[in-house]
Amino acid sequence: MKFNPKSKTSTIFLLIGSFAVVSLILWNTNSFFKTFKEEERLKMEIWATAQSEFLQSSENVELGNLHLRVFQNNTSTPMILINKDSSIRVNNIPKEKVTDSVYIQKKLKQFQSENTPISIDQQGEHLATLYYGNSDVLNKLKYYPIALLLIIFLFGTVIYFLFKTNKSSEQNKLWAGMAKETAHQIGTPLSSLLGWNELLKTEHINPDITKEIEKDIDRLQTITERFSKIGSLPKLDKLDIVDETEKAYAYLKKRSSKLIHFSFVSKIESVPVLLNSSLYNWTIENLVKNGIDAMRGKGSIAIEIVPDGKFVNILIADTGSGIPKSSYTTIFNPGVTTKKRGWGLGLSLVKRIVEEYHNGKIKVLSSGKEGTIMQISLKVAV
């Protein structure tokens, strides 16, 4: 599949454009925050000037005085005024906290960290020091860029998963198309093989040879059927899981190395399960072959069928080198393989057959130096 250069270019431009827009918003927000903070500073300086005038004026000041109006109009910025006689005046701070010295000291430190205190002087004489903090509006505005970044991050995550899902869907369609085409291409030589085998029977060749050829032809037909079913919903029949597993196992046993010891145990005589025989046999074949590869052609393969309430578990154990614990889940992802050669599609197909087509579960039950145990869980048919 060729990559479209135009698609790549448009994606790059989209990413650059998105980054530029986000940077512009953050810069604008930061500028607005600084401007707002400067305006609050200016307001506090005006308040300090009014306070200086007030302290220098006569004690009998009318309520309509401009200085008092300035004081009364400040309803948002918290402040603490410490006069030269160490008396304290607070504004926009809870009344119940005014007499709490520990709280006041804590607020003084907080205000100092947020804004530089303003010294109130008149004619060279120090009258008071004004400590003020950020208003509620400014505090909320301070967290706005963080909220904006979080929203952008969530939006980007959604876009990423949409692209990923779309790409995965396209890949699935591609693999399904390739599988169906492979099945179609195999059909022609299979027909010829059937004809040649019938011709061999007329040549008085050992019947055991032609029987084995027939078995392999049947196997090729089964493989063709498997590939043709990829991408479409298979038909499920009520079949005996013990019988189906044993048949698939027996075929592999006969065609595997004599250095491999095979064993089959079932703790129940028969269990009806909704199965597609061809795809289930493919699953067993993949898992057994993976075990053989892990043992490098020498060791033991064991299958055990165990009832588990409304489910039946099929355990496939080998004595191979094992799977790292960190790969227990990723091993089923397309393209992931522990082999030096291979496309990493076998276990991915197995997972899809078990979980999507048969509504079952498959997992690495355990793995270590002594080997690996894979577990398939299927629901018992009523």
Rank of each mutant, 00 (worst) to 15 (best):
K6M: 12
S23W: 01
L24M: 12
F33R: 06
E39M: 10
L42G: 06
M44Y: 02
E45L: 07
I46M: 14
T49F: 05
E53D: 11
E53T: 08
F54Q: 07
L55W: 00
E59R: 10
N60I: 11
L68F: 02
R69W: 07
Q72W: 14
N73G: 04
T75I: 13
L81T: 04
L81S: 04
I88A: 04
N92H: 09
V98M: 08
D100L: 00
V102L: 06
I104D: 01
I104Q: 02
K107E: 06
N115R: 13
G124T: 07
E125N: 12
H126A: 15
L130G: 05
L130D: 00
Y131I: 06
S135I: 04
K140A: 09
K142S: 13
L148E: 11
L148G: 07
V158W: 10
L162P: 05
T165P: 06
K167Q: 15
L174E: 13
A176G: 04
A176I: 06
E181A: 12
E181P: 01
T182V: 13
T182D: 14
I186N: 07
P189A: 05
L194C: 12
L199D: 15
P207V: 01
P207R: 00
I209W: 03
K211D: 12
D218L: 10
L220T: 09
T224S: 15
I230S: 01
L233H: 13
L236E: 08
L239A: 06
I241C: 08
I241V: 11
I241M: 11
A250M: 11
L252S: 04
K254F: 13
S257F: 00
S263W: 03
F264M: 05
K267F: 08
E269K: 14
E269Y: 12
P272V: 03
P272S: 03
L274C: 11
L275E: 07
S278G: 05
N286G: 09
N286S: 14
L287M: 06
I292Q: 03
A294M: 09
M295F: 03
G299L: 03
G299F: 03
K310T: 13
V312P: 02
V312R: 02
N313E: 10
T319V: 01
S321R: 07
S321H: 10
K325L: 09
N333V: 07
G342R: 11
G342D: 10
G344V: 04
G346Q: 09
L347G: 03
N359I: 01
K361G: 11
G368K: 01
G371P: 02
I376W: 05
V382S: 15
